[in-house]
Design a protein around this nucleic acid. Structure first.
Length: 533
RNA sequence: GGAUCCCUAGCUCAAUUGGCAGAGCAGCUGACUCUUAAUCAGCAUGUUGUGGGUUCGAGUCCCACGGGAUUCACCA
């Protein structure tokens, strides 16, 4: 027979509860005890909502327009719109025998106008004696009316506590201006607490809630775009026996029963391209990648990636798709094609600039790296313009470093940088014009790398050669190591159609569209160090 | 991993050369039947991130640790 733990008041000495209520919390616990001793349920199971706050306001607007001369005092409960609304108490103004509460649900706020003679006195006294207070959830039924000040309110006739808040949220007061804008007084700004206790951040900061609504809209639009283009959405393994498709250190885990080490994926690339061998023309996946690397304002250990692969196009075709996709998203999310990001203006309407990496570096660093065909020679040229870099890097890594140091920050407008060195691009097809470059591009916006794409390598002999080259160039424990994936080669030997592919950091796009400076502000639960007590 | 800065009441912030830890909000007591940052009268609020040290005396100076921010390194 099971025995269940009793419900108790945390103020009592209890060996099982670690919570130490502070003074304000102790006040609330005392109120909870008082409420329950009166026979009032503090956490009832039954709730009945007929209208959200926004629906109630809208319903009243319709009624008012149809009855311009009707009494708006709400004195006659049969006249007008009767609603039951629910929400969290965000403002209280108790004036003796009459009280005003603002309650908030996801749709917005609505005022409750409570008079002791309109309702059961015991219910009214819950408010008057502040047994129901800020942050509690309540339900109210009544007729919608306008106060003498003109605010649309529910004239409450029935009132019920839905859930008691035992800890107070940070206090923020609002003042609504005549033009509809809202000024906030008091803030909840401590970033650590906001990230660690995102629920409190969301409960208190509407603009934070809005960011994540925008995020959902962006991802929904992305899905619709690819669905409309005839792509198939797929899901591929997160736990992979061999990681690949990107240069990054993976997380390792272990399957006990199979005695098998597994990696959390660092990209979806190789699994998606196998599907083109299987006969799909175009596939995409939106999902989580994991990289065992440092965090920064634009890096989180787990992040959301979009990848797509489409047969019978090359990287030119990919550029066209990407440009249309991003423009569609920006238009849907912002209503236009121009966005303000941290003081910069980005135009997504105009055709994006396309520039080879060689040309970009030539313009900004005055180095033509093709004049320096060896790592030693290129190192010397870079040292001459004052650049610092890690020793013993490959030629391609140096070129990439050169781009990052001299060009990246200047690429504010959306820009395609084309034709990367081969030795850092093991899955891209060589360009026609030489043996050093491959058909690959990255996109840059606001000085940040946003995405990466290739004309995909589909010759299994060349692919195998690349794996061999990578094994020679990079040690297995280096970030850039690309382990040979025999099964991927086996798939390619069955024939892979010529195709183009693309990957993009979705979080970074969300940062741009929502004008957030840090990736942590577009992730509900950003990765933080473990909390120490 | 390095450098710099930050951590004071539930929230936002003060505290002079090292000299009695304070204010607004919310909280508590009371008043108030149309308020809206409600108002008015009164009350209370602390292990100054943690642990050491210097000093007659530390929120303030020094050391270590914890957490965070920025930045560099790293990062297709």
């Amino acid at each position: 027979m099971l025995s269940f733990s009793p419900i108790f008041y945390p103020s009592e000495a209890n060996p099982y509860m670690t919570w130490q209520p502070n003074k304000l919390e102790q006040e609330r616990l005392d109120k909870l005890r008082q409420i329950e001793s009166m026979g009032v349920e503090a956490f009832p199971a039954r709730v009945k909502r007929t209208h959200t706050a926004a629906q109630a306001l809208a319903a009243y607007a319709v009624w008012e327009a149809a009855h311009p001369d009707a009494d708006k005092s709400g004195d006659d409960p049969a006249l007008g719109v009767t609603v039951t609304v629910c929400g969290r108490v965000r403002r209280q103004n108790i004036k003796g025998k009459v009280s005003f509460l603002h309650i908030e649900d996801e749709s917005g706020r609505i005022q409750l106008f409570m008079r002791v003679n309109d309702m059961d006195e015991a219910a009214y006294n819950l408010v008057r004696e502040k047994l129901v207070e800020l942050d509690d959830f309540v339900q109210a039924t009544g007729t919608i009316m306008r106060t003498q000040a003109g605010e649309i309110s529910v004239r409450v006739r029935e009132f019920k506590l839905l859930a008691k808040a035992l800890s107070p949220l940070p206090v923020i007061k609002q003042q609504k201006q005549d033009d509809g804008t809202v000024i906030e007084f008091g803030e909840f700004t401590d970033v650590e607490t906001r990230y660690r206790q995102r629920y409190a951040d969301l409960a208190v900061n509407r603009e934070v809630r809005d960011v994540f609504k925008q995020r959902a809209l962006i991802i929904r639009t992305m899905r619709e775009f690819f669905d409309n283009e005839g792509f198939l959405e797929v899901e591929t393994p997160i736990l992979q026996p061999i990681y690949g498709g990107a240069a990054a250190r993976p997380f390792v885990t272990h399957h006990n029963q199979l005695h098998q080490d597994l990696y959390l994926r660092i990209s979806f690339e190789l699994y998606l391209k196998r599907l083109l061998v299987g006969g799909y023309d175009a596939v995409y996946e939106i999902g989580r990648d994991f990289r065992n690397e440092g965090v920064s304002f634009k890096h989180n250990t787990e992040f959301t990636m979009l990848e797509f692969y489409k047969a019978y196009i090359d990287y030119e075709g990919v550029m066209d798709l990407v440009e249309r996709m991003v423009r569609t998203i920006v238009q849907r999310a912002t209503g236009g094609t121009v966005i303000e990001y941290q003081g910069q203006t980005l135009d997504f309407g105009a055709p994006w600039q396309r520039l080879t990496i060689r040309e970009a570096i030539k313009q900004n660093a005055e180095i033509d790296y093709m004049d320096h065909p060896t790592a030693e020679s290129l190192e010397a040229a870079m040292r001459k313009i004052g650049l610092q870099f890690a020793p013993n890097q490959t030629w391609g890594k140096l070129v990439e470093h050169l781009l990052g140091e001299t060009v990246e920050k200047k690429l504010i407008q959306p820009t395609f940088i084309l034709d990367y060195p081969r030795d850092i691009s093991p899955f891209a097809k060589r360009v026609g014009y030489d043996n050093q470059h491959v058909e690959r591009f990255e996109i840059y916006m606001a000085g940040m790398e946003m995405g990466n794409a290739f004309t995909e390598l589909n010759d299994p002999r060349d692919q195998e050669a690349r794996f061999i080259d990578m094994a020679q160039l990079y040690r297995a424990d280096e970030d850039d190591a690309t382990p040979t994936d025999e099964d991927y080669l086996r798939a390619m030997r069955f024939g892979m159609p010529p195709c183009g592919g693309f990957g993009m950091g979705v979080d970074r796009l969300v940062m741009l569209v929502t004008n957030q400076r840090s990736i942590r502000d577009v992730l509900l639960y950003p990765h933080l160090r473990e909390e120490q007590r």
